[in-house]
């Protein structure tokens, strides 16, 4: 095996710039997924059966089909759906956000149900209405329980984001591929991309552990 990383050093800044693209997609999709996930999880625990049914159907569809298919549906389907072609990174944020909302809603639902029923009873007994009780008492406690799972979802998102390369977003993966094409050698740049993903995931992992530890302090 002969590896020649030397010739890729000039291309390194170009590949590294993809980190920003990747992180931006992951971050925005993460927020979208989180907000939508919370709403869906409220639907799932709602007294109104119809809302629960809608949220369950949503979850089922997004979990039951490949992410890359959802990505391509949204990207290539946009002219027929909304009349114009959206740009690749918007399609990426949308599809990743919608997809992870399905997973996150399940995580949050389980987290809410895991909070001791006595907590909502105590809030009710004080005359606190449902919504503030949920926001101020139940959700903060649920968040603590679900943080590890949420962090996991975020990490998965970071890794999976590499598939945006199929619609031409110039993220880390795409850039490594382009550089490989220029130099007629794909092995090294893809190894470099792998290392970059691995480091990003490790940083996220450490970050997550840190937040978890801080939140655990009130236990």
């Amino acid at each position: 095996m002969n590896l020649d990383f030397q010739q890729f050093i000039p291309s390194l800044p170009y590949i590294l710039k993809g980190i920003g693209v990747t992180l931006q997609i992951v971050f925005m999709a993460g927020i979208l997924g989180f907000v939508l996930g919370i709403i869906l999880s409220f639907f799932k625990i709602s007294r109104f059966k119809l809302l629960g049914w809608i949220a369950d159907a949503y979850t089922s569809v997004f979990r039951g089909t490949p992410l890359v298919l959802q990505l391509m549906l949204i990207y290539y389907g946009s002219p027929q759906l909304i009349g114009y072609k959206i740009d690749p990174s918007t399609a990426a944020v949308l599809s990743f956000g919608l997809n992870s909302a399905a997973y996150i809603s399940e995580i949050i639902r389980a987290g809410i149900l895991a909070v001791d029923k006595g907590q909502s009873e105590a809030a009710m007994a004080l005359g606190v209405p449902y919504r503030p009780a949920m926001m101020d008492i139940i959700l903060p406690q649920a968040m603590k329980n679900i943080l590890p799972a949420l962090m996991n979802e975020f990490i998965t998102l970071t890794k999976e984001s590499a598939i945006v390369t199929v619609i031409g977003v110039t993220d880390v993966m795409r850039r490594a591929y382009i550089v490989g094409g220029e130099k007629f050698s794909y092995f090294e740049p893809i190894l470099i991309a792998g290392l970059i993903y691995y480091i990003m995931v490790m940083i996220l992992t450490v970050l997550g552990k840190g937040i978890e530890r801080r939140m655990r302090r009130s236990d």
């Binding site: 006595g118 009873e121 105590a122 007994a125 004080l126 903060p140 603590k144 009130s218």
Partner: peptide
């Protein structure tokens, strides 16, 4: 009605993520 009727439970049900004083001031 509930605001005017206080209740104390067997298992306390204090809010664990709030300080003692915050438990008292929240509602």
């Amino acid at each position: 009605v509930r605001q005017d009727v206080g209740m104390v439970f067997q298992h306390f049900h204090l809010f664990p993520h709030k300080t003692v004083l915050q438990n008292l001031t929240y509602a």
